[in-house]
Amino acid sequence: MTYCVGMMLDRGLVLMSDTRTNSGVDNISTFRKMVHWEIPGERIISVMTAGNLATTQAVISQLEERTKAPSERHNSLLEAPTMFKVASIVGNLLQDIIEERATDNGQKAAAGTFSASMIVAGQIKGMEPRLFLIYPEGNFIEASFDTPFFQIGETKYGRPILIRGYDRDMSFESAVKLMTVSFDSTLKANLSVGLPLDLLVIERDNFTPRHERRIDASDPYFQSVSTSWSEALRNALDGLPDYRMG
């Protein structure tokens, strides 16, 4: 399982993903689920992935190859004129790979076996930062300040925290803190989501990462937030009116 979040702010975009791909009693695997490409001063584009690992690896590998050797038939993310076109490229490639793998395995009716979804985020010079959620069918929706964040993977445990804490004019630091709490709650509720976490902050009109970091289990900030959040919840619960049984 996976948990990834992409969030829009007035200041730009904040992205966070876990890295766990398998969780068993004696077999825990990790794999990077966030990648980004940039042309300093011109564009920055990031993709986060959830779903069948072979599918997502194939999509990212092909996107990488296209950045190295673009052609008229296969567009490169680094040459797309808009972020909408970037989302279209990723969506079409995802759909093609899912259908190809399902057909190759004689499981056309069970294409869900190879299903995956993605979050695409970034900015091209002269345009607004944009955030998209790509579905397995290749279609997508765009975030707005009515729907300011997207989640993929194991979304239910961390979503209520994001809904309650989000503010479009919050600082990057506050957004990272909010996401950290969301991930901490998800990690505690579902062992299939796991550390380390990857963090990427994209500041508006700054076409290189504003901040990039890998957060592992020994990270002092993550440990502090996790402990403080647990204590704050217990204190808040103790402060609520007691239930009276007649």
Rank of each mutant, 00 (worst) to 15 (best):
P148F: 00
I161R: 07
S117A: 14
M83S: 06
F145S: 07
S88A: 11
F183V: 07
G106V: 09
P148E: 01
Y166V: 00
L195K: 11
L178K: 04
F132A: 10
G138P: 05
G122N: 03
K156V: 10
T103Y: 12
K156S: 10
A175S: 15
T147H: 08
A189C: 00
E128D: 15
S76V: 12
E100S: 14
A175L: 08
D169P: 01
T180Q: 03
L195I: 05
G122S: 02
L93A: 04
G112K: 06
K125Q: 12
A109C: 02
K177T: 11
N75Y: 09
I134P: 10
E154Q: 14
S117V: 01
L178T: 13
E154W: 00
I124Y: 06
S117C: 13
N92R: 12
S185D: 13
E137Y: 01
K85W: 11
Y166S: 00
K156L: 02
T147S: 13
I163H: 04
I141K: 11
N75T: 09
P81F: 02
E72P: 10
T147C: 03
P70T: 09
N105L: 13
V90D: 04
R168Q: 15
F150G: 03
D104V: 03
F140K: 01
M127C: 02
I141Y: 02
K177Y: 14
I97A: 04
S171A: 11
T147K: 09
T180Y: 00
P160K: 01
S174D: 15
M118G: 07
I152G: 06
F149R: 05
P129M: 08
L78G: 07
V120R: 11
V90A: 04
E173H: 08
D104Q: 12
Y157K: 03
Q107K: 15
S182P: 03
A143D: 03
A102M: 01
S117Q: 14
A87K: 12
A111L: 06
L77C: 05
V176E: 14
A121V: 08
G112C: 03
P81D: 08
S117G: 15
F145A: 03
P160C: 02
V176S: 05
Q123T: 13
L195A: 06
R130T: 11
S117M: 08
I141G: 02
A109H: 08
R73H: 08
P129G: 09
N190Q: 12
K85A: 15
D184V: 05
F114K: 02
R159L: 11
E128G: 01
I134L: 09
E154N: 11
S117T: 11
I124P: 10
F150N: 03
A121G: 15
T186M: 02
I141P: 00
